[in-house]
Design a protein around this nucleic acid. Structure first.
Ligand SMILES: [Mn+2]
Ligand SMILES: [Mn+2]
Ligand SMILES: [Mn+2]
Ligand SMILES: [Mn+2]
Lengths: 218, 218
DNA sequence: CTATATTTTTAGACTAGGCTAAAAATAATA
DNA sequence: TATTATTTTTAGCCTAGTCTAAAAATATAG
């Protein structure tokens, strides 16, 4: 149906539309895909031809309903495969993204239907990101960044914003994973750093770390 | 490491080297890959550059040790994925080939190691074809075509030569699958057709069918 | 409201992997 | 052996997707 490159562009634009509201710029796409703006212009013109997004020269792009559906389906496949890799093949959560990046492009409706069933129709991937349903609908959950939590409040980790191997390995070292309870013991206002408690350990984390952990307050 | 196209060529040549002994011709490759001879010439020149096969103009090609290893690994991945699709996702054996054709190109050593373990290190795929080990070694089993079996002998189905959906669905209708016992009740010499018994049913099969079922005599 | 900086697009080139049509080599036949 | 048929290669063209360099549009600043 769509090429690997087309699917990757649609997915990137979908994510950018959520990150910043509204139109997405050529440069933003180029940066997020580690490609050149001129390549992006070429591709978005092709995608506009195919009615997957709307495009006016020098103004950004916006996915059409069809474009959103295609993008959400790629994301659905990516996240389902990540669940498979972690739950069934016992990969660690910092190892699965690159492989899912390939698996997300396998073309077969039936395969995804069966994979989803095999996995017990999971709602979230191993990093806490929601898995779109087969119609491309993403359920939004109320979650906050750990950095937004006040002193003496408690939250349970429900996801991560960053999911690079480096960051995930850092979290492992600190025994933080999805479901882990975190209590904020102290907060420095001038740099946003925190002292937190995880199980019986108390330690310091930087603002950068706190801004990449999603929690639900409890 | 290698592109999708390169992997497909190596796989096709590997299969052709086994089917006919010795060098493989440009036309044979073109036919088996449903492409044009001129395209094949281009690609085999590239593969020769990369030392994956030896090539002398107008004489055919022959895979090098390296080329064989790459090809066998693609076949290993193809067949392991087919086992996954049938054993875990409950696909039918006539539905898996096309999907495995895509999955075989996913690049990750670790993935295949884990998939193999997850599946219990199977020796054969759902069509009875042997799965090469991680070094690319294929164990040969002694098997005959049903067409080579004499009247009144019995064999157990251990594989199929053809594995098109059409043929596999025909076998289903006749209740023949891997492990099924087949007794040859009669054989016509002028056209090679047979009367066989499968469970309690006795019926006619053409030479074409008999030439595409592998059995071990019992 | 100009002048400069930034963003975006265009123009032209490249690689991978195809194709067709024609030429060259090899094989088959008279 | 000479001629014809088949196989294989070459030459040239195409599309997808990328790039660099230059031009054009938009945004920012004095
Ligand atoms: Mn991922
Ligand atoms: Mn991708
Ligand atoms: Mn197959
Ligand atoms: Mn393939």
């Amino acid at each position: 149906m769509f090429t690997l490159a087309e699917e990757n562009y649609l997915k990137a634009i979908f994510h950018l539309e959520h990150e910043f509201q509204g139109e997405v710029s050529t440069n933003a796409i180029a940066e997020s895909m580690e490609t050149k703006p001129s390549s992006v212009t070429d591709m978005i013109q092709k995608l506009a031809e195919k009615k997957l997004l709307t495009y006016k020269r020098y103004k950004g792009v916006q996915l059409t309903a069809e474009g959103k559906k295609v993008a959400a389906n790629v994301i659905r496949k990516h996240r389902l495969w990540e669940v498979f890799l972690v739950e069934k093949l016992k990969f660690h959560w910092d190892q699965v993204h690159e492989i899912a990046e390939q698996l997300e492009h396998i073309q077969s409706e039936e395969l995804i239907t069966r994979l989803d069933k095999f996995l017990g129709s999971p709602d979230f991937d191993p990093h806490g990101d929601p898995i779109p349903d087969k119609h491309g609908v993403l359920k939004r959950t109320e979650k906050k960044l750990l950095s937004e939590i006040d002193k003496n409040q408690k939250g349970v980790c429900v996801g991560v914003k960053e999911s690079s191997p480096e960051f995930l390995q850092y979290l492992d070292k600190k025994k933080i994973s999805i479901g882990t309870k975190i209590r904020v013991l102290g907060k420095e206002f001038f740099d946003g750093s925190m002292i937190i408690q995880v199980f019986d350990d108390q330690f310091f984390i930087s603002k950068t770390v706190a801004e990449n952990i999603y929690v639900q307050t409890i």
